[in-house]
């Protein structure tokens, strides 16, 4: 299992000048090439900080620097290899099935029993549902986030039969699979995060028949021929940073999401020249479907 090189800094209890010392050490840590700093639970002393590094070489260099600074202060420094412990999956172990438009997105342990929902004679027919099974893990998209549901509904509003679709930031692969279930062909899901790719591959195994290909790729460096539809559930800032690439890669439509409601104006402005075909908001998050044509 993958581990992450880090340094543990333990502060002595009841150190008189602890706050000032902590501030000095924090500054020194931030001078090092750290990838992150965990400063622990303020409500549960003693103080233990864990600084993360890109590799053990930079970690060991930093250990030497910080050891000089901490000499005589009582602060101890230990090099550690932090295991992942799979908190992504463990923290989502209690999730149930979610409805998103015509889709039901469910973890493997909560797949709805179809025979149980037989409508009573004479009752209104249940709308047809399409099941997507997602194992909650390191890839975004279990259906529990508003943006996933908003994107599913946006996909469902388009006739995707025979369309070529690109899913940027595919995460768990949920939107790529949804597009395929709606009739899209040769759907490509890309993500910069390798952990997401593992999650997306697991999703394809759980949803046999989905016509989806996956690749680790940054959309800004992608050299692909244009698609009929590009769906991108990223962040407002990333949607704006990737404006050129996303516009280049779409012939007809863009579905953009992952932006906050207050970022809507900025995102729309970045895609001037595209017409707003449909949009929706939920929980402070937005989705917009843009159509080409008046460029």
């Amino acid at each position: 299992m993958r581990t992450y090189p880090a340094l543990d800094l333990r502060f002595p209890e009841a150190h008189r000048e602890q706050d000032q010392l902590a501030e000095t050490i924090e500054g020194a840590i931030l001078d090092c090439p750290i990838t992150a700093l965990d400063q622990g639970d303020a409500l549960a002393p003693p103080r233990l900080w864990r600084a993360y590094f890109p590799d053990s070489g930079t970690r060991d260099d930093a250990a030497a620097t910080l050891a000089r600074l901490c000499a005589g202060t009582g602060v101890t420094i230990d090099a550690v290899e932090v295991a992942d412990e799979d908190w992504a999956a463990r923290s989502q172990a209690g999730l149930g099935a979610v409805r998103a438009g015509r889709f039901v997105i469910a973890p493997p342990w909560a797949v709805p029993d179809r025979s149980a929902g037989t409508p009573r004679a004479g009752s209104v027919a249940q709308p047809a549902t399409t099941l997507i099974v997602i194992q909650p893990s390191m890839g975004f998209g279990t259906g529990h986030h508003a943006t996933t549901r908003l994107c599913c509904a946006a996909l469902d509003a388009i006739d995707l039969r025979g369309a070529r679709v690109l899913d940027v930031g595919t995460g768990s692969g949920v939107l790529a699979i949804a597009a395929s279930r709606l009739g899209a062909v040769a759907v490509l899901g890309i993500d910069v995060d390798e952990d997401s790719m593992l999650a997306a591959r697991a999703s394809l195994a759980l949803n046999p028949g989905a016509d989806v290909t996956l690749a680790v790729m940054d959309v800004r460096q992608a050299t692909l021929s244009p698609f009929d539809l590009v769906v991108a559930n990223l962040t407002g800032a990333l949607l704006i940073a990737a404006t050129d690439a996303l516009q280049r890669l779409s012939r007809h439509r863009l579905i953009l999401s992952g932006f906050l409601s207050e970022e809507r104006e900025d995102v729309i402005r970045a895609y001037a020249g595209w017409a707003i075909e449909r949009e929706a908001q939920e929980d402070g998050w937005g989705v917009v479907t843009l159509a080409a044509g008046i460029r």
């Binding site: 700093l37 993360y52 295991a83 412990e85 799979d86 390191m138």
Partner: peptide, 16 residues
Amino acid sequence: LQIPAGKATPAPPVGT
């Protein structure tokens, strides 16, 4: 936690 802007992932330290 101090983490790179826009780049939080469930790996350590966020997960742990």
